[in-house]
Write a protein that binds this DNA or RNA. Structure first.
Lengths: 182, 182
DNA sequence: CACTTCCTGAACATCGTGTTCGGTAAAATG
DNA sequence: CATTTTACCGAACACGATGTTCAGGAAGTG
């Protein structure tokens, strides 16, 4: 790919990231992004059709980094071993989130938060998949799924909202303590 | 208050409610609301400064209905009695939500969903208050609060998103089964 | 019947969006 | 190198939504 394209692309990403630290996405103007990135107006529109598309592509890229590097565990037939692997996997994801703290925190306001939830939720359905079926509670599996995944995402959002104060390990421990109640 | 004011006010509310059934709040135009309400442009702006203010006031009114009629239980010193009262209170709220199904469902998209969460969360902090301190898990009380309230709101959102298929009683039962794991 | 308050709607200024296009600079090609 | 292709630039433009203003008409009040 042309170097020039790369340059403007990252200039735009960097500009948006910087602006997102100060205000919500919906309050940021295309012109501001253009000025911050120091590019021409038509250049912006030759790269992205709209401001929303920019956000989506930027998130796509970021989340694929966060999640793709977190490989799914091999599924053994031993449930408790699986359970430990799941905890390790989730903790691993939290570490990745911590790595991208700067970008993720700024995205977690306004409309863009929903993108996060959607991505995360899709990913977790796979991760939690058969763990959920092993939970022995007398409620529909749909409800179980909603409860387990929803409360996990919530917890992560809460963690991010508080500036990632605790360590990933602490969060995972606390979450499973609340969920499993051994 | 002047009857005319009342009329235009409810005309505006009704118009917005109707439009919200079809698209998200952020995609609705002031002019559309005006046309749907069949009022003059300047009339709208003499009642509300902006579109957002309209939404906020409308939600204020609705949520105060939903929650104000749900009185807090008297706090006894018997925890398990308190617990039953809490379940009854929560079920009561869900019934109120069901009553306002039409309005609430349309509000639960886009930015307005956050208003719901904020209101609900504030209300639940009171409701769950001392119940949370009685849960014996070795995690910080902040975390407990986040987990309990967050997962409840999630559940309710999920319920609403699915068209309030189950009965309030079923939802409360399922929620407490997952939470308490007796 | 006065008198006050509210509604009306056209006209206007303002702002953000997205497009167009002739010109310039920088890569790629051979 | 010389040539061709490609990306960037930015001013100008059309468009649509927002919010304000104001003079005149309609509806409540006493």
């Amino acid at each position: 790919m042309d170097r020039r394209q790369q340059k403007t692309r990252t200039a735009i990403y960097d500009a948006l990231t910087k602006l997102l630290r100060k205000r919500r996405f919906e309050d940021i103007t295309v012109q501001e992004i253009i000025d911050e990135a120091n590019i021409g107006r038509s250049t912006f529109y030759s790269h992205f059709e709209t401001k929303d598309q920019l956000l989506e592509q930027m998130c796509d890229e970021m989340f694929s980094h966060v999640f793709s590097e977190s490989l799914m565990p091999e599924k053994s037939h031993d449930f408790s071993a699986n359970h430990e692997e799941l905890k390790a996997l989730l903790e691993h994801i939290l570490w990745h989130i911590k790595d991208h703290e700067d970008n993720i925190s700024s995205i977690m306001h306004g409309e863009s938060e929903k993108l996060f939830t959607r991505y995360f939720s899709g990913y977790l359905e796979d991760a939690f998949g058969d763990m959920i079926s092993h939970i022995d509670i007398d409620v529909s599996s749909e409800f179980k799924k909603q409860f387990v995944i929803g409360s996990f995402i919530n917890t992560v959002k809460w963690w991010i909202g508080n500036g990632l104060t605790q360590s990933p390990g602490e969060i995972i421990d606390a979450y499973f303590k609340c969920l499993v109640r051994k």
